[in-house]
Write a protein that binds this DNA or RNA. Sequence first.
DNA 1: CGATCCAAATTGGTAAGACCAATTAGATCT
DNA 2: AGATCTAATTGGTCTTACCAATTTGGATCG
Lengths: 243, 243
Amino acid sequence: MPGRRLYHSVAEKIVKLIDQGIFPPSSRLPGERELADQLGVSRVAVREAEIFLQARGIIEVKMGSGAYVLDPLEHDRGLPNVSAFELTEARTLFESEAAALAARDMSKETLKLLEGYLERMGGTDGDAELADREFHRTIASASGNAAVLHVVEILWRIRMESEAVRRVYDPVCHDDAEARLAEHRAILDALRQRNPAAARVAMREHFRRLIQSMLDVTEEQALEELRRKANESRERFLTSFQL
Amino acid sequence: MPGRRLYHSVAEKIVKLIDQGIFPPSSRLPGERELADQLGVSRVAVREAEIFLQARGIIEVKMGSGAYVLDPLEHDRGLPNVSAFELTEARTLFESEAAALAARDMSKETLKLLEGYLERMGGTDGDAELADREFHRTIASASGNAAVLHVVEILWRIRMESEAVRRVYDPVCHDDAEARLAEHRAILDALRQRNPAAARVAMREHFRRLIQSMLDVTEEQALEELRRKANESRERFLTSFQL
DNA sequence: CGATCCAAATTGGTAAGACCAATTAGATCT
DNA sequence: AGATCTAATTGGTCTTACCAATTTGGATCG
């Protein structure tokens, strides 16, 4: 199948242009007739390619308007409906077990990798979140169990891509860099000692403090919401009085 | 998008016929011209629908031959490359934590559900595997944490759909019904006592015995492989001698 | 009677052309 | 400057024609 039909090679060419940034997310592809001209195929082949790409969630076709490149975030990514608290509780339970498993057999190379991520987490170049993710992913990988790694990767995908989770995590992570760094250092120390129980405890401690910070932030968000509603009531009352 | 274009409604009609079992996996759909007649649309609309369904991995189109319904197992399901042992180790760590979490607050309804699944697991109507899955899923659901449930569902999907895992699990599960039932009974008892530590231990014990059985099976499989290779060598030697 | 071969039938693949439906852009009017 | 209208541009559906690949059925041969 792949590559045998004309529409498939047309689709591949379009995807290449998207990947090269020539047509970034939200941009509009040339019209069917123009693309057919440029690629030296019939309009049917272009239409078929675009149907294929639409089925794959890569573009969206609008009648009379054109074909638009979808932002990858607009795909259905199969993310569950999970709150930040639920995610953090799950991470507490599962990532701590991954850390304990990894601590049994740490290599020098892995420890050096983790040290490097820790350093980047303390940096100021906006790379901290990615380094954080890689720190955790490296630990899961060091467990030597592909299923464990897969689960940790899924948890991190939820953390990075779920709107509901980000709304709570982002303000917390904005304010807690120092505590987070210290906790990750403690995790690394336990791993360096190849002490599974210590690694489990250090990882759980990290998430316990994270949940506490999240409670602070969500309380602040709830207070902000209450204040907003009180202001609305005040304005409505004054408006009624004036009428 | 959905339902707006003709090809989309054609695709939906085809999927309905597949879901109704009228065109089961591996069967061949009617030809484009015939489908176009039956549905009262042009052949182009049928082709477009089939391209869409092919992009979704639901059918496979062969030139000169026809469109064939794919077995769902032939999709790319995004399954990681995980061994049966890795999966079981991960389940040991993670499902035991889910059970401990669920044990904190078990409802009468959930316990009754679990009892029902246990009964079906002991039955002889080939329903045991599904009941087993639902037993575990219900526990994860009783944890009250959607992220935990999501992880357990993913682990079960790997268990059910990964060829490598099934090759090891199936012979084990064929032989160990009695032990499995007893272990699940122990898990249910711990949950009934709302004892998180006991639930964790019972779940881990279930997997410890499963891993032992898996070791037995894989040793048998390895011996079988050695015998097969020895037979091949013998046959090759005899053939050479005869030439 | 079974196996083989070959032509015809059937299947999907590609294209051109016609016309309809929806949107956008530009011109005109107030 | 904003509103309205029209033409241009866009995608949507269909018909027709012909090509490429596979399957089927009948004829022939051993």
